[in-house]
Each structure stands twice: as C-alpha cells, then as structure tokens.
Amino acid sequence: MKSTPSRHDTPPLIMGILNVTPDSFSDGGRYSDTAAAVQHALAMIDEGADIIDIGGESTRPGSRAVPDPEQERRVIPVIQRLRECVSRSTQLSIDTTSARVAEAALDAGADWINDTSAGRDDPAMLALAADRSVPIVLMHRQGMPEAMQQNPCYADVVAEVRGFLSARIEAALAAGVAQNKILTDPGIGFGKTLEHNLALMAGLGEFVRFGPPVLLGASRKRVLSTVCREPDLTALMPATCATTTIGVLAGVRVFRVHDVAGNRQAADVAWAVRRAE
C-alpha cells in the first residue's frame, strides 16, 4: 500500500519534475517526445530522485487549460514505459487537476496524484484518491493559472494559505481519503507576489506543525530569479538548493525540483544536520 512519507524517521524525498509539455516555464518542449522524457526520468532517478512527477499541462502564470485527451496523449505512454523499466521503489506521480487524467495515469502505473487545485477544479478528484488509496498533494493556488499573477492579495499570506489547506484537508477526509495519504503544498508562485513567496518560505515550519507532510515546489521559480537577479531560470540550481536546505531544516518532507543531483546533496546534508540536533 502506498503512503505518504513519515516526518521523522527517514530522509526527505526528492521529486524530479518531468514536464511532458511544449510550454512549461523553464523546460517546455525539451521532453515532449516519449523517448526523451523516459531518458530524462531515468537520469533523474540515477541522480537520486525518489519520485518522478509527470505532467502534461503547464500551470505557469498565464497558461491555459489543456484538454484531457491531449494530457493523456502526452503522459500515459511515458508512465507506461517508466513503470515497465523502473523499480517499484521509485514512485510515479501524475501532475494534473483532472480526475479523468489522474485515473488513466493510475491505471497506467502512477502511484501519486499531485493536484495544484487541491481538488477544486474537478470535484471527482478527491473521491478518486480515496477509492484508489493513493497519496494526493493538495496545493494552494489563488485564482486560475491564466490570471493568478494579476494583483494577488492577502492580509496575512501564511495564515490564509494555512486556513485554505486546512479546509482542503477536511474536504479530502470527508471524501474518504485516509489521513496518511494527504500532503500539502503552500504553492510557491501560484497567485503570490515576491513578498508573499518569501513569507511562505520563512513560515514553512508553521505548515509542518499544523498538519500532514509538506511538499515544497520552489525550483527555478520567479521569486528566486528576482532575489538572485538571474533571468536565466536554468541557472537557478544553487538558489533552489538553498530553498531545499531551508525546507529540510523546517521539516518539509518532499522537494519538487528540476535539478535532482544538487538538491539531493543539499537535502542529505541538511537532514544530517537536523538529525544531529
């Protein structure tokens, strides 16, 4: 049976990002071919990825929804090929807000659901996670991707995101999702300004303390580009490693990243320090 990572007895997990899309914000089009996608996933596994998160729809700011059949055309062959050639110890995650796509992915061999809408875009998603008894990541997002960066506003971003996630946890439990199958994600970059994103990363410990295991997805995000004054998003691996270190020390359990090797090292060192405390 698949379950979410425990908080204290094992090192944090690295989730490698596999965007099978033409328009993702930093690697769109690089892995839209099945063979290229599978090769990249295998390379990430060799570098230390515990989970591969496969998505067929970009959720970058300004992106538009991709129809379910097109998402399935992109991701299902990749999941099938990976499930045939990698150990079950490597988990496969489907990154989608569509229950139909998630169900097809689970049938093809996926193990997790990563839903950037926390089950709001498709009311069938939480019931599917419950029925299939798989881990589901519930992420905070203010607005829809197409317009979420148009003047996002919060009175207290940490409190409001925490309240949203608490409500979505309750919705998942009410739908029958087991408590040990739920993870939360504060949604760095999803309807937040620079200041909001920094406040959320500074407040990661609050999310860790209040509920289920936390996933952090800060890899190559615009907040890092702005802080580092680096317009080339592919050059932000060191900055991403810094967020991974901060997250491990705060108790975050899963890190969704593009650059696996460096973040695996950062997580391992930070974990060793945390254990020494």
Rank of each mutant, 00 (worst) to 15 (best):
V260P: 01
G217D: 12
N114W: 11
S3M: 07
Q39C: 02
T116R: 01
Y154F: 12
D131M: 03
D53Y: 06
H258T: 10
L128R: 06
R209C: 04
R222P: 00
D9M: 02
P186L: 03
T245V: 15
I136T: 05
G109R: 04
C241R: 02
R209F: 01
V75P: 01
R74L: 08
A35M: 01
A276G: 12
S32Q: 13
N197R: 03
A267L: 08
D121C: 08
L42G: 00
T59F: 07
A167I: 00
Q39D: 13
G48C: 04
E57Q: 15
G119M: 08
C85A: 11
D268H: 09
V273T: 10
A272P: 05
H40K: 14
I246C: 11
G143V: 04
S3T: 14
I94Q: 03
M148Q: 11
R209I: 00
T21L: 04
P12G: 09
Q149M: 14
L128V: 09
A250N: 12
R64I: 05
R60G: 03
L165P: 00
Q179E: 15
T184I: 15
V157K: 09
G56I: 05
A174I: 03
A118Q: 09
T97S: 13
T240Q: 10
M237W: 11
P67V: 09
L194H: 14
N263D: 13
V157P: 09
N19K: 06
P212M: 08
Q91D: 03
T243E: 11
I169T: 12
P5E: 01
S6Q: 12
V66Q: 05
L204P: 11
A49H: 02
R162H: 10
L224W: 10
M125I: 12
C228M: 15
I136R: 01
V260R: 02
F164Q: 02
I17V: 15
G205C: 06
D268V: 01
Q142C: 03
G28L: 09
A37P: 00
V214W: 01
D121T: 06
V75S: 01
